[in-house]
Design a protein around this nucleic acid. Structure first.
Lengths: 135, 135
DNA sequence: CAGTGAATGATAATCATTCGCAAGTAAAAA
DNA sequence: TTTTTACTTGCGAATGATTATCATTCACTG
């Protein structure tokens, strides 16, 4: 089977090598926001000879092609997710770096309202919450 | 003279060593958002024996005391600015890069609510709006 | 099937930041 | 004032994420 990412690569005439396919599939099968190390270990489980340098290179390639979104929080490892059209924001666990997605219509509306009030047309935004898990 | 940061340190009974005073003054005299390296070289101009480790330690100390705000973008060096008591977010004009500050109580509350709902204690957040001036 | 440019793997290098530790300093206790 | 105790500092080594280097291998064109 061909993953969605592989299809997008073809559209962009990005050469699909075996290692890029592996990274693409690992990404497609991940519903979370995997870190580079996580991606690497998942990919290495498929092909042990795969180098972490190649994972980094491939992720950057995909990101620059607009296929992936990178989330670089503070000094932590980058995490990746497939770039999607539907909008959501992120809550980052400051202890573990784990990312939780959320959506909130009300906040979206308020942002629109604020921009308008300031005389701007809202084009985009970035909202990140930083929190600590309550035990 | 005693800088505002030094006063805040006294209020919080933070021991003011000579090196901390130097960092405090360099910060107070900077109206931009200096990076650690910039701060270090400005401070080292005053006392050449000052160590960059101490600068890092001092910045972290001040940050944890709520005296400074740290801005860490991507993999770049952190930049610092004096924390203002009034919280604000930023709207960035995508055509000119001009930054407009704004405050919105309602959004702050919603953020708190969302974090709680997801099982987190909200520690911080970052909200940036990107807009285009309406003519 | 050879030629050429891109991709890979292994590892060294880099960059920001933190750590460990011995030595110094300040504040509290005696 | 001495002694004690805790905190700070400077230095260099260590860390962790990421990028660069470089020899080797691969993929496609002619």
């Amino acid at each position: 089977m061909t993953s969605r990412i592989e299809k997008l690569c073809e559209e962009r005439s990005i050469l699909l090598t075996e290692q890029r396919r592996i990274v693409a599939r690992v990404l497609s099968e991940s519903s979370d926001h995997p870190s580079v190390k996580e991606l690497y270990s998942r990919a290495a489980a498929i092909d042990a000879s795969l180098s972490i340098a190649t994972v980094y290179r491939t992720l950057r390639l995909f990101e620059e092609a607009g296929i992936l979104e990178r989330h670089a929080f503070d000094g932590r490892e980058s995490r990746y997710e497939e770039a999607s059209t539907d909008h959501h924001d992120h809550l980052i666990d400051i202890d573990t770096g784990v990312v939780v997605e959320f959506q909130n219509e009300e906040i979206e509306n308020l942002q629109e309202e604020i921009a308008t009030r300031l005389g701007f047309e809202l084009v985009g935004h970035r909202l990140e919450l930083y929190g600590r898990k309550i035990k």
